[in-house]
Nucleic acid binder design. Sequence first.
DNA 1: CTCTTGTGTACCCCAACAGTTACGTACCCG
DNA 2: CGGGTACGTAACTGTTGGGGTACACAAGAG
Lengths: 108, 108
Amino acid sequence: MDAALRAIADDSRRTMLEALASGPATAGELAALLPIARPGVSRHLRVLREAGLVEVRQEAQRRVYSLRPQPLAEVDDWLTRHLAMWEHRLDALHTEIARGTRARKDTP
Amino acid sequence: MDAALRAIADDSRRTMLEALASGPATAGELAALLPIARPGVSRHLRVLREAGLVEVRQEAQRRVYSLRPQPLAEVDDWLTRHLAMWEHRLDALHTEIARGTRARKDTP
DNA sequence: CTCTTGTGTACCCCAACAGTTACGTACCCG
DNA sequence: CGGGTACGTAACTGTTGGGGTACACAAGAG
C-alpha cells in the first residue's frame, strides 16, 4: 500500500494511470502523451509495476500495460477508515471543548 | 489536494498525523515519538501546515498542533471517484474480451 | 542473416529533500 | 532585568529521484 501511495504522489505517474484508465496502452503510446522521453516513462512504468498498479503483457515487441486498481483500492480503504476515525475523534474533542475548556487547567 | 497527497506519501509525516489523531500535541511531543530531531519535525510540520493538514494554536511558548482532515477527505474523494470509474472501465473491457478478443484484429 | 522497431537498462547530471548542528526569538518565572 | 524553556529558521551535508543520452536486446520484416 505504501508503494502505491508513493507511486501516485507523482504527477507524471498519475497522468499515466489516468491514461491507462481508458484502456491498455503500450509504453510508446504512454510516452507520446507525456512531456518526457521514453526511457523516463519506462522507469515510471517500472515503479508502477512494482507497486502492483499496472501489469504488462508482452505482445510481439510491444509491451502492453493495463491498469490494476487493487492497490489503489487498498489506499482508498486505508484513507476512508482513518478519516472516519479521525473525524469522529475531532467531533468528540469539539463537544468536549464546548462543555468547557476550563477542565484542561484542572488536569495538568 | 496534490499537496496533501505528497505530504502523506512520507512515513514520518503519516506517523505525525496518526499521533495527532489521538488529540492535539505540541511540536516537542511529536518530536519525542519520532526518530528525528526537533528541527526536522518542525519542517515536517511546516509541510503539513502548508498542505492544510494541521493547524497551529500558540499557547504561551508552546505551539499546539491539531489535525485538520478536510484535505485528506478531498484526496479520498478523488480516489473513490477515479476508482469507481476505472473499475467500471475494467469490467467493461473484460466482458468485451469475453465476447471475443478476435474483434481486435478486425479494427487495426 | 541483416534491418528496423519497440523497449528496457546503464550512466551521468542536477534539483529537491531529509537530517543535522548552531543560532535567533518569544514567552513565562524569579 | 536575567535565565530557562519551547520553538522556528539558517546554513550545510548526504541521499534520493527525475530527467536526458547512449547503448543493449528481443522479435517480426525482408
